[in-house]
Design a protein around this nucleic acid. Sequence first.
DNA 1: CAGTGGTCTAGACCACCGC
DNA 2: CGGTGGTCTAGACCACTGA
Lengths: 247, 247
Amino acid sequence: MSPRLSPPVLDGTGAIYQQIRRAVARPILRGDWAPGAKIPSEHELTELFGASRMTINKALSALADAGLIVRRRRLGSFVAERPPERAVMEIWDIGAEVARAGEAYAFELLEARRFDADPATARLFGVKPGTSVVELSGRHRADGTPIQLERRLINLEAAPAAAGKDFSVSPPGRWLLDHVAWSDAEHLIRAVNAGDETARLLEIEPRTACLVVERRTWSDRVPITWAELLSPGAARQLVGRFSQPDA
Amino acid sequence: MSPRLSPPVLDGTGAIYQQIRRAVARPILRGDWAPGAKIPSEHELTELFGASRMTINKALSALADAGLIVRRRRLGSFVAERPPERAVMEIWDIGAEVARAGEAYAFELLEARRFDADPATARLFGVKPGTSVVELSGRHRADGTPIQLERRLINLEAAPAAAGKDFSVSPPGRWLLDHVAWSDAEHLIRAVNAGDETARLLEIEPRTACLVVERRTWSDRVPITWAELLSPGAARQLVGRFSQPDA
DNA sequence: CAGTGGTCTAGACCACCGC
DNA sequence: CGGTGGTCTAGACCACTGA
């Protein structure tokens, strides 16, 4: 019943409880263990990894704090229904959002080209000038209505597989989420009036207020992608929740 | 040298390490222990609280994870230079932001009244109809230029001290942050076109794109305050950063 | 009732780093 | 060198809750 630890292999770097934490987190984040799946009990892990129960507990507690697993007495520990990677990022995955609302989602690639970063691009993106990058632009629709314009840069040195990928159907954001690991992300949010070209593409009145999310993503300091996501103000609303760490 | 635990009193609720965590967090969050102040060593706390070192360590590690303290081998543990409560909230404290930019900040109270919540207000705010609330509206300026309009509701049952407070000079947001504890906050962010009245108050062109942040704050499920903060799109930009919990 | 997680202890060894 | 935090262990008792 319980999923197998592909190889219960520890990488030997850092504290044991951190190695165990990673060993358990990896298959969850990769989706190898389905949400809801049962994780071996602390006792079982004790024998699997040859560590004391306190050490196992420390690893699992950290995973529970991070929201990757849910722990229930008497029942055991389970892969969380919605791993937090998704909880954070899905806000920005408009396709998933549209689907959740029960509307028909479609993506339309408007432009795609590959080039070597000029100084301006390099500065914007945080890569060295001359780095090979892909630039894309596209349009997202819900039930046929345009709801978001996307402009995106992808660092081919960090995600070489993106070079051969055809984004004319599935949006690059979804593909990147699924195929390229990221460790850090930054969002800048602002409001702008739609220009003529933007208004035409989104089929809205010129000067309509739009929400712009500028997102940069890194994997261990290396820039992965830069994206500018522009939506009509009426179509989109962002939500953020915070809790005091000490109550 | 080390600050005193006012009374090293545990409240007796929940796990010992949680009690210890709270006992240490309290003076930090209240500002009784200045940033940079040294916290008693684990060994000292062991004797103070009569708990084992593992338990003390668990409490302090949690505080370090939450960012309230910084731990350094050989040196000891210290109150963090910028407790995270502020790090999160100061994004929304426009006065502090303006001051950091080196501009002159001013707040102007436009309206203030006290009334019992009607059904619409109650629903918006999450309180029972009839609850006594204060409604305020005001304008924030940086170097004389209007940069934000604020509309706010305050639950007087949760923050009775707000009833007698004069907000004509210092903004209610700052006062609430300093005087009322909160445990949860929610932000909704959207873009709107400025209406005529809004444009007049902000001294901008009608239809200018504006960023609206709607914020609700609770203390342990009890609504404290609701605020709608509206800024010209050109004047303000929100920033969010995320990290993967498991790298 | 019994299995699971939640917590606690006393003691241990180690790495780090200022003195 | 010695004090500090970082980690680990083996064992223990308890609370919870499904069967």
